[in-house]
Design a protein around this nucleic acid. Structure first.
Lengths: 357, 357
DNA sequence: TCCCTGCGGGAAAGGGCTTTCTCTGCGGTA
DNA sequence: TACCGCAGAGAAAGCCCTTTCCCGCAGGGA
């Protein structure tokens, strides 16, 4: 591997001069020397050692990002937003997948700190876990104490800057929509209990139902992994336990797609027999059949805002940007089936067999 | 930011000893000093500077990966395979998205080389572009000359180790399936012409049709971006120009999903009026409606093999592993509609209106 | 008692680059 | 002619670690 001094020797100049040419330094270098250096670089196929450079300049420029999984559409969209702003500012991103493992998350904070990132962005739900939260905040505080900037996306537990999707309002929207369509027996397939995203969305949903005089008993909720298979499996369990349901809210679109698969396998027509509402509005939502009625979160924008916050000058009072959720009506949610409506007031637990011709 | 000598000073030992404790070196250190160092580390929240470490040990360990886009399911699956093996070998991955921009690809080769990666994996189609290919090979050769290992996934143009999905055989499979179902008027929505993946898949498809006495005239092919919107748009153009088609092969699943959307918008029933076959079998393929009949590529396995190759000892003769494609029958391809079959021999250009009741 | 061995620790030499500081030599001014 | 100033190049001091080499000391064998 050729080094800078190899280049310098070959060009017959000092390493200092070679460095200045290569980095287009402001210090002037005569054209002749410049040419010789450039020629040497080309001949030797010289590429500067990034670690040595990063060590020598104390200039921190990269930004660290910790997400659940970049290939999960939710995070892919957020990352797209982050990337866009980062590119505009000539910042490199170091993206790490935590796979929702708190320990891994902690490790990555250290790893990124060790890599001297200028800032840290944590995207994705927080955990209902005191110990973990304390540890994470400790590490983040230590990082901030050394001049690092931190922004979280969708987490309450951090005290600094944050970009927050309005999960609670989104849950409320989903609930109100279904109530408006006449549904009374509404079930939920939810992500892991330990995630604050799950509880926030659930809280909003519950509020909507309560306001409309409905209930959301615990037997109408099933918790599972926040992905397609989790949704499929939770939907099966839910339907087994509560066949009278006329609507299901999935707490993210991946789960909704899994639920749709279960429903299809059981021969239940959506939305004629049972309605489904998703959450997030990831790109594929419009391409499944029936196209998913869902709660849209401005995912790309969340990324854009977070990166803008993190690159902006630090201000004293923490900034929290709450981004609104919005209902997107497509084809997976419809009016409650007539049979269910007729009996709803009197026999809310009527079996599915009753509600369907 | 605390440094190693801060820790050493605080613990009252030399930096050498501190380093040995922190890195669990084989050189013995008395328990008392060890404890003092550990205590200092904890108090100072010390995290070693990764760049300094990487510079000091000449040990290269990370592996660089260049893909089109990690959040594209095709590459997400490959990356999953890469990651699995890398994790087993305690290797860090540096993943870069080229977004199919040749210049960016070249830049990333340099960037990763600068970051002293132990190996480089390039995943994704090659380009029909002499100049670019020569440049890339030049850079890769320079990298290999300094001891770097290179493996490509799905590219012919590199002369070293490679993992190759059998794109041609896959195209053949798709063609044979549709011929077997009686289709004669088969259209193709293809990715960009400049990609070797496109031409390989197309070649296999054409071979199948030719063997069955069918043709694949250029007017039955439309080229577009290799994504959902490209597929939707290409399908529209194709249908406008050749309404007599009874089957469409999309050269990847994303395009197929876009095509499905166009077909739905136009009120064309799949597969009753028109059949669709995809390519890749990405996870979502089974969840769209109708579930996609497609050509499966062992994407995760491709990643696993590539990473295994790259981490294995170098051998003199380049290894090329060709991984087979496989047809997955689902619901989007069916027999040619009766009307089309009846008239096929005589009026192959019968309008769509004729073929459909 | 002396020497050798080996253990535990520190000094110091890199690793490859950036950047400040220093030096040389030339042109211009008094 | 003497001096000042400045442009352009190089010397060298870090940046923060790892690791080799060396040293002192204690214990064991002769």
């Amino acid at each position: 591997m050729a080094t800078l001094s190899d280049v310098a020797r070959r060009a017959g100049v000092s390493p200092a001069t070679a460095s200045r040419v290569i980095n287009a330094s402001s210090k002037p270098v005569t054209d002749e020397l410049r040419e010789r250096v450039l020629a040497a670089v080309a001949e030797l196929q010289y590429v500067p050692n990034a670690h040595a450079q990063l060590l020598a300049r104390s200039h921190r420029s990269a930004v660290g990002v910790i997400v659940h999984d970049v290939s999960d559409p939710y995070f892919a969209e957020i990352t797209r937003g982050l990337q866009r702003v980062a590119t505009d500012h000539c910042r490199l991103l170091m993206i790490c997948n935590s796979y929702r493992d708190p320990d891994r998350e902690l490790e990555y904070v250290e790893l990124l700190r060790g890599h001297q990132v200028a800032a840290l962005i944590l995207a994705g739900s927080g955990y209902h876990d005191e110990t973990f939260t304390r540890q994470l905040n400790g590490k983040l505080a230590a990082y901030e104490a050394t001049g690092g900037r931190v922004v979280v996306i969708g987490r309450h537990e951090h005290s600094g800057d944050a970009v927050m999707p309005d999960n609670r309002a989104g849950g409320y929207l989903a609930g109100r929509e279904l109530c408006g369509l006449g549904h009374r027996a509404i079930g939920v397939i939810a992500g892991p209990r330990i995630l604050t995203t799950t509880t926030d969305r659930l809280a909003g949903l519950r509020q909507a139902l309560t306001e409309q005089g409905r209930e959301l008993p615990e037997r109408h909720i099933r918790y599972a992994e926040f992905d397609r298979d989790g949704g499929a499996e939770a939907a099966a369990r839910l339907l087994d336990a509560a066949p009278e349901l006329t609507a299901i809210v999935a707490l993210n679109d991946s789960m909704a797609i899994g639920a749709l698969a279960t429903l299809r396998a059981r021969g239940l027509a959506v939305p004629r027999q049972i309605s489904v509402v998703g959450f997030d509005d990831m790109p594929i939502a419009r391409d499944v059949t029936p196209a998913l009625t869902t709660v849209r979160l401005p995912l790309v924008d969340m990324g854009v805002r977070a990166m803008s916050l993190v690159l902006a000058a630090e201000v004293l009072t923490p900034r929290v940007e709450v981004l609104p959720a919005e209902l997107v009506r497509r084809d997976s949610a419809g009016p409650v089936p007539p049979a269910a409506r007729a009996t709803a007031g009197f026999a809310p637990r009527a079996g599915r067999g009753d509600a369907v011709s």
